[in-house]
Amino acid sequence: MRKSLVALSVLAATALPAAVNAADYSDDIHKNDYSWSQFNLMYAFDELPGESSHDYLEMEFGGRSGIFDLYGYVDVFNLTEDKDSDKAGSNKLFMKFAPRVSLDGLTGKDLSFGPVQELYLATLFNWGGGPNDDVNNYFVGLGSDVEVPWLGKIGLNLYGLYEMKDKKWNGYQISTNWFKPFHFFDNGSFLSYQGYIDYQFGADEKDIPGVGELKTTSGGAMFNGLYWHSERYAVGYGMKLYNDVYTLKDGGVAGKTSGVGHYISVTYKF
Rank of each mutant, 00 (worst) to 15 (best):
Y120D: 02
D145S: 11
Q117G: 08
G141D: 01
D133I: 12
S144A: 10
F113P: 06
A122G: 04
L79Q: 05
V146E: 09
A122W: 01
K92N: 14
F125E: 15
A88Y: 12
P115I: 06
D166M: 03
M95A: 09
D145M: 08
L142R: 07
S102L: 13
R100E: 13
T80L: 13
D84P: 09
G62E: 12
D134I: 15
L70V: 14
K109S: 09
K87F: 03
N187C: 09
P181W: 11
Q117N: 08
L142M: 12
G129L: 11
G195V: 11
E147Y: 13
D145W: 07
D69S: 13
K168V: 00
K92P: 07
V116S: 06
G160E: 06
G152K: 10
P181I: 05
E81M: 15
Y162F: 08
L106A: 07
R100F: 06
N91A: 15
Y196W: 15
F125M: 15
D75R: 03
L151Q: 01
F94L: 01
K87E: 10
N126C: 13
F139A: 02
D166C: 02
S65P: 12
F68Q: 14
G195H: 02
Y193S: 03
R100N: 13
Y71P: 03
K109T: 01
P149M: 04
Y193I: 05
Y159N: 02
K168T: 00
Y138V: 14
L156C: 05
L119G: 01
Y120G: 00
P149V: 10
D110P: 01
T80S: 14
W169G: 00
L106I: 04
S65R: 12
D186R: 09
G141F: 01
A98R: 05
G155E: 09
P131S: 10
G128V: 12
M164K: 02
K109A: 05
F182S: 04
G152I: 10
N177A: 07
G62M: 13
L70Q: 11
D82V: 06
E118V: 10
I67Q: 14
L156M: 06
Y196M: 14
P131W: 08
D198T: 06
N170M: 00
S65C: 12
K153C: 08
G66D: 01
F139Y: 11
D86Q: 08
E81A: 15
Y71V: 09
N157R: 00
N177T: 14
D133N: 14
P181N: 07
V135T: 15
L124M: 13
F179Y: 06
N177L: 06
V148Q: 11
S189P: 02
G62R: 08
S102A: 13
D75N: 09
W178V: 08
V101W: 03
G130I: 08
N187L: 08
K153Y: 12
I197T: 07
V140I: 15
Q173K: 10
V101K: 07
N170C: 00
P99C: 10
P131G: 14
F179I: 11
L111A: 10
V76K: 01
F185E: 11
T176A: 07
G152H: 11
L121P: 02
G72W: 04
